[in-house]
C-alpha cells in the first residue's frame, strides 16, 4: 500500500472519530455547564459525574428506529442527515491543531473551510423539505434566510484579516500573529465574526430554525435515532469549526506560552482557546432569550454588514498606508 493512501485512511478515521469525540465532550460540557448555570447538578447517573452518559445516549440513538413519516420524500429524507454530516467533517482536514498536526496544508484552507460549512444549509433545506411537516418547513425557511444573510458579515470580517496577512493559508495567518493576536487590532471584526458564527451554527440567541417554543424542533422535528444524531453531530462539529477559525484568525491559533509538554503544547493551547470560545457559546445559549426573526434579519443587514464593511474599508486604508 502506498504510504500516501495509508496516511489518508488514518487521517479519515482520526477525523471522523474526532468529530464523534468532540460531540461527546461538547454534549457533556453543554449539559454540565447549563446545569450549573441553572443551579442543578446535571448528569450524575452514568459513571462518575455522569461522564459516560453521552456514550449511553449514543447507543440509545443508534438503537432507535428511524421513522420515516408518510408523505415524505423518502430518499431525500434519508439523504439529509448524511448531507449535513459529511461536509462538516472535512474542515478538520485542514485545521492546524499545532505546528505539525495538520492533515493537509492547503494555500486556500480558509476558503475550503468556509465552503464546506456552507453546505450545511443545503442539508437543512433538504431535511425540512423532505419531512412534509409545516414546522420543519418553517425551520428551513428561517435557517436558509439566516445562513445566507449572516454569511456576508462573517466573510467581510474575515476579509479584513486576509487583507492584513495576504494569505488564505491558516498556518500563514498564525505565523503572521507572531507578536500580537489579531483580536487586539481587529476587535470589531472578532465580535462580528463571533455573532455571525452563532447565527451560522443556529445557536441561541439565534436558534430560530429550531425554536422550541414556536416550531417544536424546527427542521429536525421528524427525525429520530441516527437521523437526529447526525444533525446533532454536525451542529457540534460546526460549532467547533467556527470557534477554531476564530481561534486561528484572532487568537493566535496554537501559539501560546511554552508548556513542558514538548510538541503537545500547541494542541493544548489550541484546544483551550477553542473550548473557551465554545464555553462562551454555551453560556450565551443558557442566558439569553431568543430574538425574533425580523429582529435577527434587521440586526444583520442594518448593523453587522455596515459595520463589517466600514471595518474592512478602514483596514484596507490602513494596510495601504503602512
Amino acid at each position: 500500500m502506498p504510504p500516501e493512501l495509508l496516511r489518508m485512511i488514518i487521517a479519515a478515521v482520526l477525523v471522523v472519530s474526532f468529530v464523534f469525540l468532540n460531540a461527546m465532550v461538547l454534549g457533556y460540557m453543554e449539559r454540565k455547564v447549563s446545569a450549573h448555570i441553572q443551579r442543578r447538578p446535571g448528569l450524575m447517573e452514568v459513571g462518575p459525574h455522569g461522564v459516560l452518559q453521552l456514550i449511553i445516549d449514543g447507543l440509545k440513538l443508534i438503537g432507535k428506529q428511524l421513522v420515516v413519516p408518510e408523505g415524505s420524500n423518502k430518499f431525500l429524507f434519508r439523504l439529509a442527515p448524511l448531507l449535513s454530516f459529511a461536509p462538516c467533517v472535512l474542515p478538520f482536514v485542514v485545521i492546524p491543531f499545532s505546528r505539525k498536526l495538520q492533515i493537509v496544508s492547503m494555500d486556500v484552507s480558509l476558503i475550503f473551510i468556509l465552503a464546506m460549512t456552507s453546505i450545511n444549509v443545503v442539508a437543512i433545506l433538504v431535511a425540512g423539505w423532505a419531512s412534509n411537516n409545516k414546522y420543519s418547513l418553517f425551520g428551513t425557511f428561517r435557517s436558509v434566510a439566516q445562513a445566507v444573510s449572516y454569511e456576508i458579515p462573517m466573510l467581510l470580517s474575515l476579509l479584513s484579516i486576509i487583507l492584513m496577512t495576504s494569505t488564505f493559508s491558516l498556518q500563514g495567518i498564525i505565523a503572521a500573529q507572531k507578536y500580537y493576536w489579531f483580536i487586539l487590532v481587529q476587535p470589531l471584526a472578532f465580535i462580528i465574526y463571533f455573532i455571525s458564527g452563532l447565527a451560522e451554527t443556529n445557536r441561541a440567541p439565534f436558534d430560530l430554525p429550531e425554536a422550541e417554543s414556536e416550531l417544536t424542533a424546527g427542521f429536525h422535528t421528524e427525525y429520530s435515532g441516527m437521523g437526529f444524531s447526525f444533525f446533532f453531530l454536525a451542529e457540534y462539529a460546526n460549532m467547533f469549526t467556527v470557534c477554531s477559525i476564530a481561534t486561528i484568525l484572532f487568537l493566535g491559533g496554537w501559539k501560546g506560552i511554552p508548556l513542558p509538554l514538548g510538541d503537545f503544547t500547541g494542541i493544548v493551547w489550541f484546544m483551550l482557546k477553542v473550548y473557551g470560545l465554545l464555553f462562551v457559546m454555551i453560556w450565551a445559549r443558557w442566558t439569553y432569550p431568543r430574538v425574533r426573526f425580523d429582529q435577527l434579519m434587521s440586526f444583520c443587514w442594518k448593523y453587522l454588514i455596515p459595520f463589517a464593511l466600514a471595518n474592512l474599508l478602514i483596514t484596507a486604508v490602513v494596510v495601504k498606508l503602512i
Partner: peptide
C-alpha cells in the same frame, strides 16, 4: 413565559 421566549434558565430560578 421566559421559556416561551426561548430563555431556558429563568424557569429553574423561579422554581427554586
Amino acid at each position: 413565559f421566559l421559556l416561551d421566549l426561548g430563555a431556558f434558565t429563568p424557569i429553574l430560578y423561579t422554581f427554586i
